[in-house]
């Protein structure tokens, strides 16, 4: 499966540098829907749109701005963003290694995979293998677009995962909700432990499926039987963003023209 590259650069630790690509580790579940055009069931795509000119804006005409006052923006280019931390925008430098079991789960944010780029396969495998043997992960900071991420790089089933972590300041304190006393009924605890031990199994997420997905699948089967499927027209996927948007704008203009003719 070829996953779309989100970022590319280097993972480094000490004097070793491994060229890598960042790809998704999470996808929408099995039961996901597409939005369609009611008219002919063509799939819909998300595009940036200018409300004033009422047209689609191609990627090369889109800039990033920070609002300093209402409708007053300071424009920040991608190059300037990269320039804020030039040493971190193309390199994930592992500063130290930690025991993965020391990371409280509250810190984990979003997972990605790192896959080796050409020439990096061997060093990548070495890092995967050694992290697996030691159950250690690397802590690094890296910058992606407008944000600096604190990340853990760890080994999962022969691959490197990169998991973004929350900064400690983003974790809300729990003192105010923690139990006021630590009073425990030893009998109750003992009984609980016994039950827990009796109910302990290996973690197998495959056992759990979204109850709703099942219901949706049933609905889909029923619909397919009753109404069958609809078919979207065949059309050529245009290459690149520019022409697509030009066509979109022209077709929209054409629609306006036809309306008035």
């Amino acid at each position: 499966m070829a996953l779309q590259e989100i970022w590319n650069g280097t993972v480094s630790f000490s004097l070793v540098a491994i060229p890598v690509k960042l790809v998704r580790a999470v996808e929408p579940g099995r039961v996901s829907f597409r939005l369609l055009h009611s008219k002919d069931y063509s799939p819909l795509a998300r595009r940036m749109y200018c409300p004033e000119e009422e047209k689609m804006i191609p990627a090369d005409e889109i800039i990033r701005g920070y609002e300093i006052a209402p409708d007053n923006y300071v424009v920040i280019t991608d190059k300037e963003l990269e320039s804020v931390s030039p040493e971190r925008s193309r390199t994930i430098e592992i500063i130290e290694f930690i025991d993965m079991k020391d990371v409280p789960p509250v810190y984990y944010d979003h997972p990605y995979y790192l896959v080796p780029s050409k020439g990096g396969e061997k060093a990548y495998c070495l890092l995967v293998e050694v992290m697996n043997q030691t159950n250690k992960g690397g802590i690094a900071k890296f910058v992606l677009r407008d944000r600096e991420y604190l990340v853990a790089v760890k080994s999962t089933d022969g691959a490197l995962t990169l998991i973004t972590l929350h900064y400690s300041g983003e974790i809300l304190p729990d003192e105010d909700i923690a139990p006021k006393t630590g009073k425990i009924d030893p009998g109750e605890k003992g009984r609980m432990k016994k039950i827990i031990k009796g109910m302990t199994a290996d973690f197998d997420p495959d056992k759990y499926t979204n109850e709703r997905s099942k219901k949706i699948m049933e609905l889909l089967e029923r619909k397919a039987k009753e109404k069958g499927t609809v078919e979207a027209p065949e059309f050529e996927e245009e290459e690149g963003e520019g022409p697509v948007d030009l066509v979109a704008v022209l077709e929209e203009s054409m629609r306006q023209v036809k309306k008035h003719r």
Binding site: R46, M48, P51, M56, G65, D146, E237, E252
Partner: peptide
């Protein structure tokens, strides 16, 4: 348990700096 605050950037149209928003477009008719 977590509260994240991040700087909010907006996407603008290059020539007049009008704030853009997302719009669903028909992949066929554009």
């Amino acid at each position: 348990a977590v509260h994240q605050e991040r700087m909010q950037f907006h996407l603008l149209h290059k020539h007049d700096r009008v704030k853009l928003h997302q719009q669903m477009i028909c992949a066929h008719e554009k």
